[in-house]
Design a protein around this nucleic acid. Structure first.
Lengths: 348, 348
DNA sequence: GCAAAAAATGTACACGCGTACATTTTGTCA
DNA sequence: TGACAAAATGTACGCGTGTACATTTTTTGC
């Protein structure tokens, strides 16, 4: 096929290759002849042969958490990040290979590199567990380019052994809690997610630090744990209702919107309305935040940008910024809506 | 590398290949020797070379609608289908290549096959437009295995020129509208999506057919059009409010949950509550349906199963069922919740 | 125990491309 | 115009598999 193009253009196959790849010096006239010939014959290079010859698949792998039941991860989180990754991948002329992780199976990420199926890797939904840690350590050891998204290993602010793109959930939680305090809340219940996720830890620390700064007491009974699902928030509503009705709590800060909405629904069954009987703040600013009634105050996370950043880092193969830093932490932003609405609280 | 394995096992490279691929007759003893040697050396076959030699990439391509702003397609729809596709792809030992479509650019799907980047294709979010039709026609002409998901070309029930997996939105809409009539509604407003999607057409026809069957009049003013976004539903609420307050409408059937929720929110601003002042039924049964207040009656669509089916069809390369039918239509199911709650309506 | 069939293994090469290196053409300067 | 450098193009080969075909080994049937 390439041979036919070469013959039609009156050149050698090598020249065809050079023209199509824009490499090496080529006379403008021959270039046009080759392109014309290729167009006429409808020649499309065999990507498999190209990858083989170049020893590059051109694929960015993205590992997804197992999500048969969409439970732990809101689909918002997932699809937004993927969208960001996709836009960057597309811009760089690469492709995106989706890799579905089996639940609790040993990860074999290095094999993906050894087989050259992927040139780079982004890991979504990693947890701080033996299984994940060893897999990532292995990748580091071998020097393969990869990036962990929305998860940090080691303490906050510490230098990461590998590329990491995260959002500043510590500051985000601080903002959220400060906002609750600003509107008059003093006893802020907190629904967190599992601490395998650095996200959860960051939020807890942000929550606690503001309490301390503000001279408010830290009350263990106010700190609850769900699993980031709506259902878990809903189930915690019984405890929350008691806390609120007894005056032990006047507000709820949930570590994501799904749990916030679940809690909101559960509390409603106890006759408690967000924005009226208690203030409620979620996290993520998913679509669901705007769909809830009352609309949910939340912390917007730049998931798309995080995806783009991770992709660009891992495809560029470089470190972050001019320095040799291995981790990027993107800012988040509080979005105030009805569930902490001042007017509604006043009308109480 | 393979050579080293061969030497260590004391066989030829061809035998190594045979063992690893489980092809051809191999003595059990040599098989074990080869496997042991491969394990010891940590040999991982080069996927690129395999693909090249086999002339198969092992990739199933999935074309995604452009979704910079997550507007037309709920992320629920998207991630559920993808999840279904993913499970099937994984089970078949293939990989999933994500292909992001640029907005309003000519589609070049055939090139993906010609370059052998993909062995099969699933098209998500196709519309009945020139751009899409010609692209699909081209694929058909060339005989490439592909499947269109959740979209039909040509009239309902007609034989499709290519593989199609859809859900029975006609029956689903009928069920929804019948349910509304069952609970006493007589003037059912209908918010549909753009008619580029066969989904929309099916829902409209289902809606109309039940009205006719039930002897209810068809009123043009009750039929509104949005774009499947929450915002569009919200914006139509003004018209709906007027219809409801003037007694022209007593219920709303929205073609998806997002628009239903948008309408619900908009109507609330007019003092109208779903399940109390009017009945509301959505479609898709996305998570959002359960997150809304009141929880939304909706039509559950087996998105995951559709994804699995499409993947299995297109990877199997076969037709659907024993007959030569080219299209599968999966059943949907009405899920009744509070927004059409009988008890609430009674208390009106 | 021998011939023939069957099973197991080895040998050799193609797959389509990119590219190092050799060769030819073009351009430059005196 | 000739010598030489630079640009343009051609030639040849490797990349790591899978597999058709040739060859060797084992089994079978008598």
């Amino acid at each position: 096929m390439r041979q036919q193009v070469a013959k039609l253009a009156g050149v050698s196959e090598a020249t065809v290759s050079r023209v199509l790849n824009g490499v090496g010096p080529v006379k403008e006239a021959t270039k046009q002849r080759v392109l014309a010939a290729a167009a006429e014959l409808g020649y499309v290079p065999n990507a498999l042969a190209q990858q083989f010859a170049r020893k590059k698949s051109g694929n960015l792998g993205v590992v997804l958490p197992h999500m048969a039941k969409v439970s732990l991860f809101s689909t918002y989180y997932f699809s937004e990040m993927l969208s960001g990754i996709g836009s960057e991948v597309q811009a760089s002329g690469n492709d995106l290979l989706l890799l579905f992780r089996e639940a609790d199976q040993p990860r074999n990420y290095t094999a993906l590199f050894q087989s050259q199926k992927i040139d780079a890797l982004i890991v979504l939904g990693a947890r701080n567990m033996e299984l994940d840690r060893t897999a990532l350590e292995e990748l580091t050891q071998e020097g393969y380019p990869f990036c962990v998204l929305n998860q940090r290993f080691g303490p906050r602010g510490s230098e990461s052994p590998f590329l990491t793109v995260d959002a500043d959930h510590w500051s985000g939680s601080q903002e959220a809690v400060r906002h609750l305090i600003d509107i008059g809340c003093r006893r802020i219940a907190f629904i967190n997610g599992p601490e395998q996720y650095s996200n959860s830890i960051d939020r807890r620390e942000g929550y606690l630090s503001v309490l301390v700064q503000s001279g408010l007491p830290i009350e263990q009974p106010l700190m609850l744990t769900g699993n980031y699902s709506r259902k878990s928030g809903y189930e915690l509503a019984n405890q929350l209702a008691e806390l609120i009705k007894s005056g032990q709590a006047d507000s709820v800060f949930a570590a994501n919107d799904r749990m916030a909405i679940g809690a909101m629904q559960g509390l409603r069954e106890h006759g408690l309305e967000a924005g009226r009987d208690y203030a409620l703040c979620g996290y993520d600013d998913a679509d669901a935040a705007r769909m809830a009634s009352p609309q949910l105050t939340s912390v917007a996370v730049p998931f798309q940008e995080m995806g783009r950043k991770a992709a660009s880092l891992v495809l560029g193969g470089g470190s972050i910024g001019a320095d040799a830093s291995r981790s990027a932490v993107l800012p988040v932003q509080l979005v105030i809506r009805e569930s902490t609405g001042v007017q509604q609280r006043r009308s109480k």
